[in-house]
């Protein structure tokens, strides 16, 4: 890990949930554990209790949307956000958090914006992180078609926004959980640590 400060600098163990209705939640869990976080899979509202932050993984956004409805997770997830707990969404996770779905970040995602699977790609992406660009993997990826004034766009591909932050919410259209570069997750875990210190 390229000199990223440990998210455990606060000395306290942090616990991060990964929404595990469908998708690559195990890959996220593996990265978070590597970075020293405690990880819990979230499938029902009670699983959100006492988490410090939450990841919504990649997967099929239609499947995850239906799963959130079936488990009645919509309101509990919005309450989690309202309590100031950081949330990180990748690919389908970005879509789940947008205006048309959970309404947790003020963006509108365009689904499958880069095209079908034959157009899926990897590209180096500059996110302003120490250590240079990240190798970003885009799979039937969305982009951010519109965003509100309080949203900070962190990166673009061919003029389309693919990473953004608004307050405690971080979204990316690619899959940092699939490579072995943990810097984007470290950035998220830092915000989880910070939010906990603020709350304490």
């Amino acid at each position: 890990m390229n000199g990223v400060p440990s998210p455990r600098a606060s000395g306290e163990q942090i616990t991060v949930g990964v929404l595990a209705l469908q998708g690559d939640f195990e890959a996220h869990g593996a990265v978070l554990k590597r970075l020293g976080a405690e990880v819990r899979e979230v499938r029902v509202p009670a699983d959100l209790d006492r988490l410090d932050g939450l990841v919504i993984p990649g997967g099929e956004s239609t499947t995850i949307t239906l799963g959130i409805e079936r488990e009645q997770l919509g309101d509990p997830l919005r309450a989690f956000h309202a309590a100031g707990k950081p949330i990180f969404g990748t690919c389908a996770g970005l879509i789940m958090l947008d205006r048309d779905h959970l309404g947790i970040i003020d963006v509108r995602a365009e689904r499958n914006a880069f095209g079908r699977q034959v157009r899926s790609f990897e590209a180096p992406l500059e996110l302003g992180l120490e250590g240079g660009p990240v190798e970003a993997i885009f799979i039937r990826a969305p982009w951010i078609a519109e965003h509100g004034p309080s949203v900070e766009i962190l990166a673009e591909v061919e003029g389309h926004a693919v990473a953004a932050r608004e307050g405690s919410v971080l979204v990316v259209a690619f899959h940092p959980e699939l490579g072995d570069d943990d810097r984007v997750h470290a950035l998220f875990l830092q915000s989880v640590s910070d939010a906990r210190l603020t709350a304490a």
């Binding site: 690559d24 990649g58 389908a92 699977q117 899926s120 993997i137 799979i139 899959h175 699939l178």
Partner: peptide, 11 residues
Amino acid sequence: VKAGLAEMLKG
């Protein structure tokens, strides 16, 4: 990218 789509189908 090819194996990655299968990751997204998991579960």
